[in-house]
Amino acid sequence: MIGVLLADDEAMVRAGVRAILASGGESEVVAEAGDGREAVELARAHRPDVALLDIRMPRLDGLAAAEELVRTVPGTAVAMLTTFSEHSYVARALAAGATGFLLKSGDPYELMAGVRAVADGAAFLSPKAARYVVEDLGRDGGRFAREERARARVALLSPREREVLGLVGAGLSNPEIAARLHLVEGTVKAYVSAVLDRLEVRNRVLAAIVAYEAGLVETDA
């Protein structure tokens, strides 16, 4: 069972998220916080697998809380839970060390899949959030220029590496990619490492962004 710390200053939102996660049977909320400072304190006490953080919270916002959690509770994966109006925070959240970005208005399945993915060490951007990531980053240097650069970088990969990159972008963990491609997990791990090296990116989140920019992963219009 995946232990989740849920932090949001709206009780109704927490209740809804808690119910969705419980319905999936894979995750359970082990602690709830109404502000960022409390979230950090509870994470240190409970050591959850995943911290699901709202961005706008009192005392300490979700971005600052994410930075502190990544630094002080490294065993806890961090995912941001937010709204469309806050998509400009995506790059800051990723820079803070978050490996997931989920929308409050998204499909419940995306929430369950996102929590599972980041708990497994994968990156997960909900499709709509991913579109905003690409658009937001595209403001620096031009969106089409970034897309062309991403395609050029992906062109250096082998067909199998491109396939693995697309699945990383879709939020699949190594075991899930192995099952999808009928490979052993060790082979997938080697492919992922090779992809990160060839793309010259630090982690799966940045690799996922390249996958979206190169058109390997579909996003909602």
Rank of each mutant, 00 (worst) to 15 (best):
I2K: 07
V4Y: 03
L6A: 07
V13M: 09
R14S: 05
A15P: 01
S23G: 03
S23R: 14
G24D: 11
G24E: 06
E28M: 08
A31E: 03
E32S: 11
G36P: 09
G36H: 10
A43C: 14
A43L: 04
H46K: 14
L53S: 10
G62N: 04
L63Q: 01
L69T: 09
T72W: 11
V73N: 10
M80E: 04
T83K: 04
F84T: 11
S85Q: 14
S85V: 13
H87M: 15
S88W: 13
Y89A: 15
V90G: 06
A91I: 14
A91L: 15
A93W: 05
A96M: 04
G97P: 06
G97Q: 09
G97M: 09
F101R: 00
L103F: 02
S105I: 13
G106A: 15
G106T: 10
P108D: 11
V115G: 02
R116C: 03
R116S: 09
R116D: 02
D120K: 07
F124I: 00
S126V: 04
A129G: 05
A129Q: 00
V134T: 15
G141P: 10
G141V: 12
R143N: 04
A145C: 07
R146K: 11
R149P: 00
V154G: 05
R160N: 02
E161I: 02
L167E: 01
G169F: 07
P175L: 12
P175V: 10
E176K: 08
E185P: 00
V188T: 10
A190Q: 09
V195Y: 02
L196T: 03
R198E: 11
L199H: 03
V201S: 05
V205R: 02
A207T: 14
I209W: 08
V210A: 05
Y212L: 10
E213M: 04
V217A: 04
E218L: 08
